[in-house]
Amino acid sequence: MRLILLGPPGAGKGTQAQRLVKTLNIPQLSTGDMLRAAVAAGTPIGLKAKAVMESGALVSDDIVVGIINDRIDEPDAKRGFILDGFPRTLAQARALEAMLAAKGLKLDAAIELTVDAPKLVERIVQRAAEAKAAGMPARKDDDPEVFKSRLGAYERDTAAVTPFYRERGLLHEVDGMAPIGDVAKAIDAVVSEVAAA
């Protein structure tokens, strides 16, 4: 099962991805984690990424797709994987599709956690308040202004990815504002439907 989880920051992608890792026994591929691992391992693509990161520039789509390409060849990803936080742009979605096609693979589904942006901001403010009340540090990205800026970037860049997957019949929308258990049930229903197809 090869899945993409789409949705803005705070929609619950990380929570659902971790759950799917356990239920489907496939890895969650975080591009940030993979970049750091490739750099640490000194792979050819990791060395390229390291040079770019040290210069302070953003790692190119070619490098990120190259790292995903290497990672999905590893034994634990043979049964599938969950991409979370990638693709972020239409160019990345196209590059991912071409890379998978070159391996004779394709995605099974893109699951979008849809949200109500103003309510999502309230949710983040509440999460920060709960962390503070519990004496725990709030996540850096739980600052409402930082969060609004990330949400704006998501809407500007990643919103174009949704129609790309809708046109290919891969997009499944799930209400990301529902309680966590209901979101999990809805995602499991999508996974079962796709597996049966």
Rank of each mutant, 00 (worst) to 15 (best):
N25V: 09
N25W: 07
I26T: 11
P27Q: 11
Q28G: 05
Q28P: 02
Q28I: 03
S30I: 09
M34D: 11
L35D: 12
R36Y: 10
R36C: 13
R36K: 15
A38R: 05
A40D: 13
A40V: 03
T43L: 07
T43G: 11
G46Y: 06
G46K: 01
G46T: 04
K48S: 07
A49C: 04
A49R: 02
A49M: 07
K50T: 03
A51N: 05
A51E: 13
M53L: 13
M53R: 04
E54R: 11
G56V: 04
G56D: 07
G56W: 07
G56S: 09
L58E: 03
L58K: 05
S60Y: 04
D61Y: 08
D62P: 02
D62Q: 14
D62M: 03
I63G: 00
V64G: 00
V64W: 01
V65K: 02
G66M: 04
G66I: 03
I67G: 00
I67P: 01
N69V: 00
R71P: 00
R71I: 02
D73R: 15
E74F: 00
P75W: 02
P75D: 13
P75F: 01
D76R: 04
A77I: 12
R79N: 13
G80H: 08
G80F: 10
G80I: 12
F81W: 14
I82L: 08
L83K: 09
D84K: 11
D84T: 08
G85H: 05
G85M: 03
G85D: 04
P87E: 10
R88C: 10
R88S: 07
R88K: 14
R88M: 11
T89D: 06
A91F: 12
Q92D: 06
A93S: 12
A93N: 10
A93C: 09
R94H: 14
L96T: 11
E97T: 15
M99F: 07
A101G: 08
A101K: 15
K103M: 03
K103G: 03
K103W: 11
G104I: 08
G104D: 09
K106L: 01
K106N: 06
D108I: 07
A109P: 09
V115S: 09
A117T: 06
A117H: 06
A117D: 13
K119C: 00
K119Q: 14
V121E: 02
V121Y: 03
R123P: 03
R123G: 01
R123T: 06
I124P: 00
V125Q: 06
Q126W: 02
A128Q: 03
A129E: 14
A131N: 06
A131H: 01
K132H: 04
M136W: 00
M136R: 15
M136Q: 15
M136G: 04
A138F: 11
A138P: 04
D141K: 11
D142V: 07
D143L: 07
D143W: 08
P144L: 09
S149M: 04
R150P: 07
R150N: 06
L151S: 14
L151D: 12
L151Y: 15
L151A: 13
G152R: 14
A153M: 15
A153N: 15
Y154T: 08
E155I: 08
E155T: 09
E155H: 15
R156G: 02
T158K: 14
T158D: 12
A159I: 15
A160G: 10
A160S: 15
V161K: 07
P163M: 13
P163L: 13
